[in-house]
Design a protein around this nucleic acid. Structure first.
Length: 462
DNA sequence: TCTGGGGTCCTAGGACCC
DNA sequence: TCTGGGGTCCTAGGACCC
């Protein structure tokens, strides 16, 4: 299936047979030592000639992805679900979509992103689970801690997906594909979850290799066979080509990646802008993006779609307060301050609007953020006849340290209060401390519940 | 396919400045 | 003040990914 020999020859063993099966004390030492020195970004080759174009120094990238992650965790925690169609995302009557489903559920046509009612119609015997983010996060942490033992150059693409660049560590690993296989075995053994692994000279090829490998497989795009590998893949397999772009390309009679090779770069650029340049290069297997390690997040957001559309301003503001509370908790946990606060509203007709504010002094505390969010929300939702199906709040342009302001006397009162609240919540749960608005929200929910009317999906005790 | 939640990146258009 | 051109910042919104 793979020609590991080519790779093995390319990477002459730097030390003796003892390291062949290393998990490697040596690797761990190297990883620790080099973690402080990120790899230099790879300089992009301007070459745009046909598919065989490759960078001067071949890189060794591994893409690894946990199969049906949330569903697999649910099965692991409850073995009686094994072999059954498991659908994670919510209960069948709820407003929501499947975020993951087991391969057994996929046989019925259920897929992630499908709305729960339709999933239920296709698969009434399915086992519907709401899921628990904290549990998935814990599995994800374990997954990444294993990966970090092999190289410092690990990029977390999502909770269940990572890129590893082994190029800098090549002296530790006599065989790249052999190492990638061992990583796969180890993750599976230690987490109990099945993963798919792709190996290639850059991110796009490694990722497409993983797609080929699914489920639970391994695939390497061997040197010199990139063109053959790419030619017959459907355009939809290229990241960045979503439903809208597919429609446009199919009108041009472009169905496969190989068909894209006939389009000039200028044409793709004129249709898709910068995204068109990416399509041009990636369809040829050219990708110089480096593996990016542990950057500060660009944004953090929290939002809720209500079980029933709401128009009552008290309820909406109370819910906004709850979202700000969760948002600022995440900011404090990430040691981030936000320069931009944004509020989002989605009306019953699905039209979505947002309002944002740029802050001179970045913020992190509940009181500050809620005040801004409330103003933005009232600006947005004043006098509308439509009810809302969603509200959300987002913080972006994040920085680590709060710069001092010349014009505001610095007081850490808010920060100390926030830290104290966080501590109590860590010990006794989120619901152990609530703002006035949240208490009101909780009271209204309880009241409505007694009348048999359930208002929302999220729970304040989260 | 009546469409979640949490992200990333890109673009168009207006304001403002020189 | 019937008015050019370019640069930059900001806001709003959309496509896309998992």
């Amino acid at each position: 299936m793979s020609n590991a020999t080519t790779v093995e020859r390319a990477a002459a063993p730097a030390f003796g047979p003892a390291c062949l099966d290393a998990t490697p004390a040596a690797a761990r030492a190297f990883v620790r030592a080099s973690a402080a020195h990120p790899a230099a970004p790879v300089v992009s080759s301007p070459s745009v000639s046909p598919p065989s174009a490759r960078p001067a120094q071949r890189r060794f990238l591994v893409h690894i992805d946990i199969d049906a992650f949330f569903a697999a965790v649910e099965v692991l925690l409850n073995p009686s679900l094994k072999g059954k169609p498991v659908i994670v995302g919510g209960l069948p009557h709820e407003r929501g979509v499947a975020s993951t489903c087991s391969y057994e559920a996929r046989k019925y046509g259920v897929h992630s992103g499908m709305n729960l009612r339709n999933a239920y119609k296709l698969c009434p015997q399915g086992i519907f689970v709401r899921g628990s983010y904290q549990v998935y996060q814990a599995f994800s942490d374990k997954f990444f801690s294993i990966l970090h033992e092999y190289t410092p150059d690990v990029e977390d693409a999502s909770l269940d997906e990572a890129y590893l660049d082994l190029t800098r560590c090549r002296h530790l690993y006599p065989s790249f594909s052999g190492t990638a296989r061992r990583i796969k075995e180890r993750v599976e053994r230690e987490t109990g979850l099945k993963v798919s692994v792709g190996v290639g000279p850059n991110k796009i090829l490694a990722k497409l290799a993983t797609k080929r490998a699914k489920p639970a497989g391994f695939f390497e795009v061997e040197p010199g066979r990139e063109e053959e590998f790419l030619r017959d893949l459907g355009i939809e397999s290229l990241p960045g080509i979503g439903p809208k772009s597919q429609v446009i390309l199919r009108m041009l009679n472009i169905q496969k990646i190989g068909d894209l090779w006939g389009l000039p770069r200028t044409t793709l650029h004129s249709i898709f802008g910068l995204g068109g340049d990416d399509i041009y290069l990636q369809s040829r297997g050219i990708d110089s993006r480096p593996v990016v390690t542990s950057a500060i997040p660009k944004s953090v957001s929290r939002e809720t779609t209500f079980l029933e559309d709401l128009w009552d301003r008290r309820l909406l503001l109370a819910h906004l307060a709850y979202l700000c509370d969760r948002l600022t908790l995440a900011l404090r946990q990430g040691h981030c301050y936000a320069h931009i606060i944004e509020v989002k509203a989605r009306y019953s007709d699905f039209k979505t609007e947002g309002r944002r504010r740029l802050l001179i002094t970045p913020r992190q505390e509940m009181g500050d953020v809620y005040k801004i969010a409330e103003e933005l929300f009232l600006e947005l939702y004043s006098g509308s006849r439509l009810s809302l199906r969603l509200v959300g709040v987002k913080a972006s342009d994040l920085v680590r340290a709060r710069p001092l302001s010349l014009f505001e006397p610095y007081s850490d009162r808010q920060e100390r209060l926030g830290a104290a609240v966080d501590q109590v919540r860590e010990k006794y749960g989120f619901g152990s401390v609530l703002t006035m608005r949240e208490k009101m929200l909780e009271a209204i929910y309880q009241f409505e519940k007694k009348r048999g009317f359930v208002l929302k999906t999220a729970s304040l005790t989260r």
